[in-house]
Amino acid sequence: MPQPYLLPEDKRLLVVIPALNEEESLTRVIGNVNAAVPQATVLVINDGSTDKTAAVAKAAGANVVTLPYNLGIGAAMQTGFIYAYENNFDFMVQVDGDGQHNPNEIKELIPFLVADQADVVIGSRYIEDRGYITPAPRRMGIIILAQFVSLLTRKKYTDPTSGFRASSRKVIALCSNIYPSDYPEPEALMLFHKANIRVKEIPVTMNPRYGGQSSITPLRSAYYMVKVMLAIAILTIRKRPEAFV
């Protein structure tokens, strides 16, 4: 059993788990988060689930915000940022509700924020080969997308769709205000670029999902990629967020 991570005493961490019909995996995910970072507050954003997601999360001891209907992952995450901002959290980590992210690696992300070396730390599956198996077409799509985002932001990214991210107070403030809703993970990288946010990618190990379905089926991958790239290209003309120039 790995050692739990201990935060600096004056820092508060919020772990946000966006969940849409994740009753099968949530108990395990929340349990793992509590074991890995016992001081953290866990917040599940129940994005209009039709199963027992909210009850399961409450039973596992998490705070639960239930959205009145499905708003999509971007708006769900933004709800987490708003909560973190209004409740004065210093850091926020996003952990997927399906069990793909390893809560034990939260301790790899947070130290860069504590040391103020980055404002956003992203766990990437593809910096080192740690045995995470991606179907070839999707891997190809992610490589193209990564190249595209790297080109537009002039910064190297390997895993632009990774949702395993830690944010500083500065980014919490920004994202509670403006957060992309259509393809939030890659689009947020453009937002960070525009707002001069320091982003760092570090290698992590991801698991196969515990249960449920991926929101991106292989069939939709190509279509998804074209849409994302168009959306990101459009974002380059968008105004800089004013408070962060």
Binding site: V64, L71, A75, T79, I82
Partner: peptide, 10 residues
Amino acid sequence: AAQRIGLLEH
């Protein structure tokens, strides 16, 4: 509005 409803309910 929907986000606020969720947060307020909590």
